[in-house]
């Protein structure tokens, strides 16, 4: 029997949650025994070629590309996990949710005190994914099966959850492993 496959991605995140995953230290070798990493930033695979057992999502949805990637993950992963505060509540990128998008772009590309932009143009190339009106938590875009909060979630939280999922046990996190910071 082949090993179950897992996939990970970072949407509107900072890769800190992936760092926390690497922070499981030598247990990464045990994890590699349990699973095959099908598509994740380390191998930079661009698309799914097989169904995965577990998908880990870091970051929320701030643009149309995030939404597309998230939907692809949903259809290609049996179990989808929101990892970290950005995936769960938008996180730092969601601080723009209290400001209209137009004002955000104006500040970032025209009015900001350190901006040098003689033409005053706001980038609008077809190659650049369109921003959404606000940053959305992943579970407001697709169905999410499990949530691992934290900024980032402790390495032990990721380890406990992954081992539980891969050994068909319920995820039961002790007090010390549910953190929002």
């Amino acid at each position: 029997m082949s090993k179950p496959k897992i996939a990970t991605t970072s949407l509107a995140g900072c890769f800190g949650c992936h760092m926390s995953l690497l922070d499981i230290d030598e247990r990464i070798l045990e994890l590699a025994e349990l699973v095959e990493f099908h598509k994740w930033p380390i191998n930079d695979r661009k698309s799914f070629s097989a169904q995965c057992a577990v998908g880990l999502i870091e970051g929320g949805c701030c643009n149309e590309e995030n939404v597309e990637v998230l939907r692809t993950f949903r259809s290609s992963c049996d179990v989808l996990v929101s990892v970290g505060d950005c995936a769960i509540m938008g996180g730092i990128p969601a601080m723009r949710n209290m400001v209209p998008l137009e004002e955000c772009l104006q500040e970032a590309f025209v009015d900001g005190p350190t901006v040098h932009n003689p033409t005053g143009a706001i980038p609008n190339d077809v190659e650049i994914p369109l921003l959404l009106d606000k940053v959305y938590p992943c579970h407001e875009v697709v169905k999410i099966d499990y949530y691992l909060p934290g900024c980032p979630p402790p390495a032990d939280t990721l380890w406990e959850a992954l081992v539980a999922l891969l050994t068909n046990k319920p995820i039961s996190l002790p007090y010390n492993l549910i953190k929002y910071d």
Binding site: I88, M89, H139, E140, P149
Partner: peptide, 10 residues
């Protein structure tokens, strides 16, 4: 609680 079940209002 790992995530609230209601939509965020911001």
């Amino acid at each position: 609680i790992t995530a609230p079940k209601y939509p965020y209002q911001f």
